[in-house]
């Protein structure tokens, strides 16, 4: 008997007024698997990943995360505490230092003691390579450092799955790799991840599966090797030839 998948999307559709954003999107992410979600701008990638933790509502279909199906009666805060999310613009809390950023939800959601939360935070700061930044304000850190703190903040909740929404698109080029390296370590430790990104090099190295979206539809849902060898959809071939040229 196989274990049930960590994330299941079943015919999820969403529209803003009459404009469809997601149309009948279905996929599954198995435990320990890394799925890269890619596609052209406006294809619905970010919207899809935000539906998974209920930050974006959707009109039809169903989403199940770690056995919990999202619905009007779902305890969203409780579910979100088990889903880590990293955003394009980091969104660290500017009025707190790095340590407080990582401790806030541990203390107020998981009810850990301050000492326990700080120990966990310092542990994670070492893991993301920023052991000496605990008392820094986010504004004094580079973009790459801020994003690594944001990853630590998400990991502090001991999530069952991590969502990344274009984690490197707002970074200077030389800072992209320090963030991708942290993500790669995480993948190697067996974390289940859904990653919206344009970094095809990362997808090649780290992903198990690739989901290709265009105009709100899933055009490709394939193993990484199959996707990069020869995508079935014409649109995906075009996309790959453009992003891989550079």
């Amino acid at each position: 008997m196989t274990e049930p998948a960590m994330v299941v999307l079943d015919r999820v559709s969403k529209s803003y007024g009459r404009t469809p954003v997601l149309q009948d999107c279905s996929t599954e992410v198995a435990r320990g698997q890394v799925m890269v979600v890619c596609g052209p701008s406006g294809s619905g990638k970010s919207t899809m990943i935000k539906c998974v933790n209920g930050l974006e509502p959707y009109q039809s279909g169903s989403i199940t995360v770690d056995g919990v199906t999202l619905g009007p009666k779902t305890d969203l805060p409780k579910l979100r505490a088990r889903i880590g999310m990293v955003f394009q613009h980091f969104d660290l809390y500017p009025h707190m230092n790095v340590l407080q950023n990582i401790c806030l939800a541990q203390i107020h959601v998981l009810k850990r003691s301050r000492a326990e939360a700080e120990a966990r935070a310092l542990d994670l700061l070492r893991r993301v390579g920023l052991p000496d930044k605990a008392s820094s304000r986010p504004a004094t850190l580079s973009g790459g450092q801020q994003q690594r703190v944001a990853i630590a903040r998400a990991l502090a909740m001991d999530p069952a799955v991590m969502l990344f929404d274009e984690p490197t698109s707002a970074l200077d080029p030389e800072m992209v790799s320090e963030v991708l390296d942290v993500m790669q370590d995480l993948a190697q430790d067996g974390m289940t991840m859904m990653v919206v990104t344009h970094e095809m090099g990362f997808a090649r190295r780290v992903a198990h599966r690739v989901l290709f979206l265009d105009q709100g539809r899933v055009l490709e849902d394939a193993d990484k090797d199959a996707f990069f060898a020869e995508p079935k959809a014409e649109r995906a071939r075009q996309f790959l030839s453009k992003v891989l040229q550079h």
Binding site: L79, D91, L92, Y93, L104, M157
Partner: peptide
Amino acid sequence: VPPGQTAAAAATGLSRWQVMRLVVLPQ
């Protein structure tokens, strides 16, 4: 206060009121 702050705080499992009290109001 930028909406990203609310989204990031809510994504960690803080309740609507906790997001307001701990993240939005201080800023």
